[in-house]
Lab assay of single mutants.
Amino acid sequence: DENEERIRAFALYKGIDPEKARELWERGEINKDDEEKAWREYK
C-alpha cells in the first residue's frame, strides 16, 4: 500500500533501516517536508 511505499522511500532517502523508519512513522516523528521530498524523489 502507499504508506508502505512512503515508509520505504523515506528510509532510502534518510539512509536508515525501513523498520526504524516504520517506528518513526508510527510515533509521528517523521518530518512531513522530508517525507514529501523523499516521496517525490522516489517516484
Rank of each mutant, 00 (worst) to 15 (best):
N3W: 15
P18A: 10
R6M: 09
W39G: 02
R22T: 02
L24H: 04
P18G: 05
E36F: 07
E2N: 12
R8E: 04
E4G: 06
E4I: 08
E23D: 10
W25R: 03
E19W: 10
R27G: 06
A21D: 00
R8K: 14
F10H: 01
I30L: 06
K32N: 07
K14G: 03
D1T: 12
I7A: 01
R8N: 07
K43C: 15
N3T: 15
W25Y: 14
R8P: 00
I7H: 01
I7C: 07
E29C: 15
A38S: 11
E4W: 13
I30H: 03
I30E: 01
A21L: 02
R40T: 11
E41P: 02
N31C: 13
I16Y: 04
K32R: 11
K37A: 14
D17M: 07
K43S: 11
D34F: 04
N3M: 15
I7M: 06
D33M: 09
R22F: 06
I7T: 01
K37S: 09
I30F: 11
G28Q: 04
N31V: 06
R40Y: 13
K32P: 14
E23V: 10
E29I: 07
E41S: 10
I16A: 00
N3E: 14
A21V: 08
L12G: 03
E36A: 08
N3Y: 15
E5Q: 11
E19D: 13
K20S: 11
K20D: 10
E26S: 10
A21S: 04
E41Q: 13
I7E: 00
E4L: 10
K20V: 14
N31Q: 09
L12M: 13
E26M: 14
E29K: 06
L12E: 10
A38R: 02
G28W: 02
K14H: 12
N31E: 10
K14R: 08
W39L: 06
E5S: 06
A9S: 04
G28S: 04
K37I: 11
D33Q: 10
E35A: 15
I7R: 01
E36D: 10
K37W: 09
A9Q: 05
G15C: 15
A9E: 02
A38F: 11
D33I: 09
E36H: 05
F10M: 09
E41H: 12
K43D: 06
R40S: 11
P18R: 09
W39S: 02
E2K: 09
D17R: 07
D33G: 08
I7D: 01
R27C: 11
E23N: 06
A9K: 05
N3H: 14
R6Y: 06
E36N: 06
E41D: 10
E2F: 14
A21H: 00
R40H: 12
A21F: 02
R40V: 09
E23G: 06
K37G: 06
L12S: 08
E5T: 06
E5V: 06
W39A: 04
E19N: 09
K32L: 11
A11I: 02
R6V: 05
L12D: 06
K37C: 14
A11W: 02
F10I: 15
K20M: 13
W39M: 07
E35T: 10
Y13D: 02
R40W: 12
I30V: 11
E5N: 06
Y13F: 12
Y13N: 02
K14E: 04
W39T: 01
A9G: 01
N3V: 15
N31H: 09
R27D: 04
E5D: 10
E36G: 03
R22E: 02
L24A: 06
N31D: 14
D17C: 15
G28K: 04
F10V: 12
K43E: 08
G15L: 03
D34N: 03
A11F: 01
A11R: 00
N31I: 06
F10S: 01
E23W: 10
I30T: 04
E4V: 07
E35L: 15
E2Q: 12
W39R: 03
D1P: 11
G28E: 04
K14W: 15
K20I: 14
K20Q: 14
A21G: 01
D1Q: 12
E41M: 13
E23F: 07
D1V: 11
D17T: 15
E19L: 11
E26G: 07
L24F: 05
N31T: 14
A9P: 00
K37D: 09
R8G: 02
E19F: 08
L24S: 03
E36L: 09
D33K: 07
R22W: 07
K14V: 12
A38D: 03
R8Y: 14
E5Y: 07
E26K: 10
E5I: 07
K37Q: 13
E41F: 13
L12V: 10
K14F: 15
K14A: 14
D33A: 11
R27P: 00
N31W: 06
K37N: 12
G28N: 07
R8T: 08
K14N: 08
P18M: 15
W25D: 00
A11V: 01
R8V: 10
D1L: 12
A9D: 02
N31R: 07
E36Q: 07
W25S: 02
E41N: 10
E19H: 08
I30C: 05
E29P: 02
I30N: 02
D33H: 08
R40L: 13
E2L: 13
R22G: 01
G15A: 05
K43R: 12
A11Q: 01
E19T: 09
I7P: 00
I30M: 06
E2D: 13
L12W: 15
D17Y: 03
G28H: 05
W25P: 00
L12T: 09
K43L: 14
N3Q: 14
E19G: 10
R40K: 13
D33Y: 09
Y42M: 05
R22K: 10
R22S: 03
E23K: 07
R22V: 03
L24D: 00
L24Q: 06
W39F: 06
R6F: 14
E35M: 15
K32H: 09
E5M: 10
K20P: 01
R6I: 08
K43Y: 10
R22N: 01
